[in-house]
Amino acid sequence: MTGRLFLTSPMSALAAALEVPVGALVDEPPRANVAPGQQIVTLTHDRLCHMRWGIIPVGRVNARGRPVMETIVNVRSETVFDKTAFAGTGRAVVPVDGWYEWTGEKRRKTAWRITPKGGGFLYFAAITDLWRAPGGMEVAQVATLTCPPNGDVAPVHHRMPVLLEKEQIGTWLTGTAGAVDPLLRPWPEGSLDILEARGGDWTAP
């Protein structure tokens, strides 16, 4: 699963890459280790905003009609359009500079930093939901999609995020389930750099 993200590039550079206004995120600080439960930068149809990483599935049920209890951080792309627990969710994109995975035994884990080969941003396909908290507060939430790994990621994890090319973002945000199905695939092998993360606070999930 994708358990930690990082986005340290300036928001002005991200907004320019996506051709959207930077808006209220102009002063967003660089973040080297973003965990589930925190606010993350998210792209909706035409703007950048914050959403909570992790969907609290209040009122959502599974195929047997039983409540979904666990917070949903990652969603399997193979079943996202089939499970009743995700009915009525929206779509978004989570832009990042990269993400981390870990290998090894507990307390002896090695952190791996995964970035696009040649630099630039990565764009994760995601779904969104709105949690209405006690007292009337509304919290926008997002969960990232995963798929089987490509040859780059397979040595460090059995899943990877669903990554979108920039020109595929519009299709993901507005296309039908049939139109987006071809996007829910591993990226081509050789497109990612995976290096051991050193010199930082890479606390494993």
Rank of each mutant, 00 (worst) to 15 (best):
G199T: 04
P21D: 11
G200Q: 14
A177F: 05
M51I: 06
R31I: 10
F81S: 15
D152N: 04
L18H: 03
G118C: 05
L192C: 08
L173K: 06
E196Y: 12
P161I: 05
L5K: 00
A16W: 06
T176H: 14
S191A: 14
I56C: 04
T42E: 04
A197M: 08
L25A: 00
G88C: 01
V34S: 03
V58P: 02
N62V: 08
K83V: 07
T8S: 14
H158D: 15
A92K: 07
M69V: 10
L184R: 11
D27P: 12
G59Q: 07
R64C: 14
A13C: 13
R64A: 15
T144S: 07
A126Y: 03
L164E: 06
Q168F: 10
R76T: 00
R198A: 15
A177V: 13
L48Q: 00
P57R: 02
G200N: 12
V58L: 13
P57K: 01
L14T: 00
A140T: 06
V93I: 13
F6P: 05
G200M: 13
G88A: 09
A17T: 09
V162C: 12
L173C: 08
H50K: 08
V20Q: 02
R76H: 12
P182K: 09
A140K: 13
R198S: 11
G175D: 04
T144F: 13
H50P: 02
G88N: 01
R60A: 06
L7Y: 02
G65L: 05
R4Y: 06
F86V: 08
D97S: 04
G3S: 14
A63S: 11
L25F: 00
D129M: 01
V156H: 08
Q168W: 06
G23F: 10
T110A: 09
M11E: 01
V22M: 01
A17M: 00
G199I: 02
A87H: 13
T144R: 00
S77A: 11
W53E: 04
R107G: 03
K117L: 14
T84S: 15
T203C: 05
G59P: 06
P186R: 03
W131G: 03
F86H: 01
D181C: 05
P161F: 08
V20P: 04
T115S: 12
F124H: 10
A85E: 07
L5D: 01
L184C: 10
K83C: 03
D46I: 03
P186H: 07
E167S: 15
G119D: 05
R31H: 04
P67N: 06
C147K: 00
G59C: 08
I72F: 07
W131A: 13
P161R: 08
I114C: 10
C147T: 13
P155Q: 10
V61I: 12
L164F: 06
M160R: 01
M11Y: 03
G65M: 02
V26L: 03
E28F: 08
T89A: 03
G119M: 08
S12C: 04
G190C: 12
R107H: 12
V73N: 11
G135C: 12
H158V: 04
G3P: 03
T110Y: 02
W53Y: 09
V142Q: 05
F81E: 13
V153P: 04
R132N: 13
L122H: 02
L183C: 10
